[in-house]
Computed example of a mutant assay.
Amino acid sequence: MGKWTIEALGTDKVIIGMCHFLPLPGDPSFDKKGGIEKVIEAARHDLLALQEGGVDAVMFSNEFSLPYLTDVRTETVASMARIIGELMPDVKIPFGVNVLWDPKQSLNLAAATGAKFVREIFTGVYASDFGLWNTNCGDVVRHQHNIGAEDVKLLFNIVPEAARYLGDRNIIDIAKSTVFNTKPDALCVSGLVAGAETDSQILKKVKEAVPGTVVFANTGVKLNNVEEQLSIADGAIVGTTFKKDGVFENPVDVTRVKEFMDRVKKFRENLKN
Rank of each mutant, 00 (worst) to 15 (best):
E75A: 05
T70M: 00
T123Q: 07
V125D: 08
F248A: 13
V159N: 06
G35T: 06
Y165F: 15
W101F: 09
V221T: 13
K222I: 00
I172Q: 06
D71S: 04
T213Y: 01
R119Y: 03
V264H: 04
W133L: 04
P28A: 12
L107W: 11
K183T: 11
Y68A: 12
D168M: 11
P94N: 13
I40N: 02
N270Y: 07
D102W: 10
T70S: 09
V58N: 08
W4A: 14
E41C: 06
I202V: 15
A78H: 04
V252F: 09
K13L: 06
N136D: 15
L109A: 07
A110I: 12
V159S: 11
N270D: 09
F260D: 06
N134C: 08
V193A: 14
E7I: 00
H45W: 11
T123Y: 07
W133G: 03
A194E: 07
I93S: 09
A209M: 05
V118Q: 10
H20D: 09
R82E: 15
A209S: 12
I83N: 05
N218W: 13
P211K: 04
A110P: 05
G148A: 12
L24H: 08
V141I: 14
G2F: 06
E249Y: 10
I171N: 03
K3D: 15
N108K: 15
C137V: 14
K116W: 03
I232R: 07
T135M: 05
L47D: 12
S200E: 12
H20C: 10
A209P: 01
K183W: 08
N225I: 00
I172Y: 03
L203Y: 05
T5R: 12
A110H: 12
K258Y: 08
Y165P: 02
E259W: 00
H20K: 10
V226F: 14
K204S: 14
N181I: 06
A78E: 14
Y165G: 02
M80P: 00
L187C: 08
A8N: 13
L154K: 15
L109T: 02
N146M: 14
D173M: 06
L69I: 00
R44A: 15
F117R: 12
R142C: 08
G26W: 05
